[in-house]
Write a protein that binds this DNA or RNA. Sequence first.
RNA 1: GGCCCGUUGGUGAAACGGUUAACACACAUGCCUUUCACGCAUGCAUUUAUGGGUUCAAAUCCCGUACGGGUCACCA
Length: 552
Amino acid sequence: MTNKDLADLLLPNVSSDIEYYENKYPARSLAPDAVVTRFAPSPTGFVHMGSLFASFIGKKAAHDSNGVFFLRIEDTDQKREVENGITGIINDLKNFDITIDEGMTGEDSEIGAYGPYLQSRRKEIYQTYVKHLLEMGLAYPCFCSPEEIEETRQIQEKRKQRIGYYGRYAKCRRLTFEEIREKVEHNESFIIRFKSPGSFDNKIKVNDLVKGEIEFPENDLDIVILKSDGLPTYHFAHAVDDHLMHTTHVIRGDEWISSLPIHVQLFEALGFKAPKYAHLSPIMKEEDGKKRKLSKRKDPEAAVSFYHEKGIPVPAVKLYLMTIANTNFEQWYDCNKDKTLDDFKFDFKKVSGSGSLFDVDKLYNISKNYISYLKAPEVYVGTLNWAQEYDPSFAEILKKHQDYATRLFNIEREQKKPRKDYSCYSMIKSQIWYMFDELYENVTDYEFQTINDIDEIKRILNMYMEKYYHSDDDKETWFNRIKDLSEELGYAREVKEYKNNPDAYKGHVGDVSTVLRVALTSRAMTPDLYEIMKLLGQDRIFSRYQDFIKGN
RNA sequence: GGCCCGUUGGUGAAACGGUUAACACACAUGCCUUUCACGCAUGCAUUUAUGGGUUCAAAUCCCGUACGGGUCACCA
């Protein structure tokens, strides 16, 4: 019995050969330095921040070099699959503007000439390559049961030896053809293992784009390449797919780094050219003074949808991702305010090798800056889009008062140093609600500051309405009148005057303005009062003041 | 336990054998100011986890230790 016979015995239904696939997927016609890379998640739930980060880098690296970024779904573990998992991934990516050039576009659709991009549809391909390995004597069937494997593991532990299927522990490697035939004929279930040519005593060096040169012992584990359900393991699928899809760069989490010796060995045994690897450090979170990997289960901010719900503009999230992706980006961006993310060249060498803490404060800061430089109509649209999804009643109000809301968003905006107080769309309502009568109804809680005497407050309001409010004043006149009012009531016209001689006055113009502000909005902190009053208009100002006077 | 990786302020980090150890976020104080926000100014690591070594010179190179992370599946 030859290796060929063995291969036919084990995989009788595989009829094509590897030449067929090698020809079917020819090299891509791209520039020599073009990056072809992919995002290859398994459809087991929502997209994790770390995955978004990796795919963001992948797309950026590919597009910077006029390469290709594609989406391959790794669904070889059918037990872990989640319903509509692919759709979920695609939506999460779409929400963050991660578009693909090739790959899965839905549960059942794809684009591109190197597919299928769903691994479960590539069964035939994997098996063809497994058969090829079998024929070359580089693979063999293993009939060991999980219990037997567990047993050897315990023996190895007791003997303080390395755990795994290798050397003397690789029992099935020594099976004769006859023994194999007999087991197969008895319908014993089996898996296929790779016959590792490596020795643990040999050292290999692998160059990683992020971590640099890493030295490992050579792999000597006879890893499983084909499972009993006929689907490949990750390692084998990775080698076959990335070879056939002509991936040049594999960008993935650094939990894969210890599998690198397996992967380089597999590529070599299969006669494939190995891709370049970039292993990204995990994004960490601090909890109780300790750093740990951002966890899908424990941390809401690990889910990419979290940022969508918060209403952090997508470009701001991308800006943040780039600042942690390339440590020189922040300064570059600071010096090139007129440029965009697309103008920045991503560089693998500038990726931090150690895990960075996810800095939510910084994200909010970036977002706040980003929003401050948007035009008012853009802020309106952003807020409306967010509200339509997460706060429909607020969305109705915004729609009803589109022009008014836009003017509101424009306060202190179009100037050299724009106002920065909206850090995300979900927070905007809490900052502007008092400008809408629908939301201002039944307010009873007023945050008065230094002037608290209710009669004095009423006096200020009444006098202001009777004598000092004129709807068409310009800002200077408007403010001068408030100064006049202050003076008439015994308050200093200027804060400085008051500070120089506090005993001569009841207070200063700021205190009076605060009364006018709080009685109008219930809040001590608002944008420019003049602008607010102009927007609200005389009728609303007077009616709010009168309501206040009546109610207190 | 074996094998890999990492460790610069509260946080992200720059510095690739010679700098006062950049910059940004956060924080604090002050100024500006009708409030807030903005802006401006100042402060915030006597020192790069730690102990040794190499060198005229170390955050940077070497060795040990500690701590953190990852991985050792018919999961990816």
